[in-house]
Structure formats: structure tokens, C-alpha cells
């Protein structure tokens, strides 16, 4: 068993003493209680736990999508506490990828446009070929001009994978990436995600409630009642 903060190499992500409390109907509820962790360059870390244990809240704080009540996150060597929301967005651009449970493709854009958008927001224009190539690699070569509502769930999640990896991110956050998929599509998505991660050398923080999926990561951490422990 290792500590959540254990890491052998240079860390791309570290969190110190994060805590988060929300106001519930019966008084304050602690969602995260003094959580610390560190993710090394190229490392894949799974965070497992039952529904409502605070996994997604932690992911949001680690990715700078939200701010903790206490503690700080260092993402790619930069303290998030020192940045405002736009600063955090800029830090993520092109370096951090996301895969969501609900895919979250932009409905008004084709598969290719969804992927190209990530490149353009990172200031990399004219790389449409790279986007098309990656989509082709994920078996969507014939779906480039399709809109999200013309794609199946599995295909949508593969477009989301392409969008997450097209910038060759240093770090990828994945939130229950198979939660809305059947077993076959889920397995396919996970295989592609891990192979792309390996190909691009991206670190991975994966939130899941599936222990089998967690085992594919280098390290698994368990979230229980707001506390993070190593498995």
C-alpha cells in the first residue's frame, strides 16, 4: 500500500490539504476532508469510491474547475490559488484534456469541428489534418462531418477522446468515462484511452466506481466519506 502523495517522478499535479464543505438542509456537510495527493509525469491514478463519496468534487478541484475552501492545488507546477478562473482556463488550454461521463460534445459542431476546437483554443490553428487523423485512428474516419446527435453514444465518447488527446495533453482527467456506455463500447473506449495515453505519454487521473477499470491504472486511491486513502 502506498500513500496518496507517493510519486517517484516529477509531479504534474499535487494537492495539499484540500477540504470542501457545502451547506446541506441539515447544516454543513463535509465533502472533502483534508485530501492530499500527487500525480507524477506519465502516471495513471484511479480514484474509486461509491456514488456521493466526493470523487467528482475532487476531480473538479484538481482540474481547477472549482476552488477548495482550504488547501491548494499545483497543476503543471502552477499554484491554482494564485489564479483566477480565466487564468486557470488558460493554464489548461492545450495541456489538460477531459473525458466526461456525458461526453459533452458541442451540439452545433461536427465531430471534426469539436476536435479542432480544442486545438484552436490552444492557439494551434490549421491543424485540422491532425484532428481528422486522430478521429480516423479511433475508427471515426467516415463520421467527420456528423453532428453529435447523429452519432451513437460510443462514437460520441470516441470523439470526446479525440478532443481530449488531440493537443497531446500532459494530463488527462476522466470522469466515469464509461458511465453512459454499454459494456462493449465501454471496454472499447477504455482500451483506446489507455493506448492513446501511452502513445502521448499523458498522465491520467481517472474517477470511476469500477474496480476492474481502476486496476488498469498505476495506482488506485479510494475515496470514502471525504477521505482519500491509498488502496
Amino acid at each position: 500500500m502506498t500513500s496518496p502523495e507517493q510519486s517517484d517522478n516529477v509531479s504534474v499535479l499535487s494537492a495539499q490539504a484540500l477540504s470542501r464543505t457545502v451547506q446541506g438542509p441539515e447544516g454543513p456537510m463535509t465533502i472533502l476532508d483534508d485530501v492530499s495527493l500527487s500525480v507524477a509525469e506519465g502516471e495513471a491514478v484511479a480514484i474509486v469510491g461509491p456514488s456521493g463519496s466526493g470523487k467528482s468534487t475532487l476531480l473538479g478541484l484538481l482540474a481547477g474547475l472549482d476552488v477548495p475552501d482550504h488547501g491548494d492545488v499545483h497543476l503543471l507546477g502552477q499554484s491554482l490559488a494564485a489564479l483566477d478562473e480565466d487564468g486557470r482556463a488558460q493554464l489548461r488550454a492545450g495541456r489538460v484534456g477531459f473525458v466526461f461521463q456525458s461526453f459533452h460534445l458541442l451540439p452545433g459542431f461536427t465531430a471534426l469541428e469539436n476536435v479542432t476546437l480544442a486545438l484552436e483554443l490552444a492557439g494551434r490553428h490549421g491543424e485540422q489534418d491532425a484532428a481528422a487523423q486522430l478521429l480516423g485512428q479511433l475508427g471515426l474516419g467516415s463520421r467527420l462531418q456528423h453532428y453529435p446527435d447523429q452519432l451513437s453514444g460510443g462514437e460520441q465518447q470516441r470523439v470526446a477522446l479525440a478532443r481530449a488527446f488531440v493537443t497531446r495533453p500532459v494530463l488527462l482527467f476522466a470522469d466515469e468515462p464509461t458511465g453512459n456506455l454499454d459494456a462493449g463500447n465501454g471496454e472499447k473506449t477504455i482500451s483506446l484511452m489507455f493506448s492513446l495515453r501511452e502513445e502521448f505519454g499523458s498522465s491520467l487521473v481517472l474517477v470511476t466506481h469500477d474496480p476492474a477499470l481502476a486496476q488498469r491504472c498505476d495506482r488506485s486511491l479510494s475515496m470514502q466519506a471525504g477521505k482519500l486513502t491509498a488502496l
Partner: peptide
């Protein structure tokens, strides 16, 4: 878009 790095 903001998770992808766009400002508000």
C-alpha cells in the same frame, strides 16, 4: 469550452 481553456 472553459474546461478546454476558453475564458469566460
Amino acid at each position: 469550452l472553459r474546461t478546454l481553456g476558453a475564458r469566460r
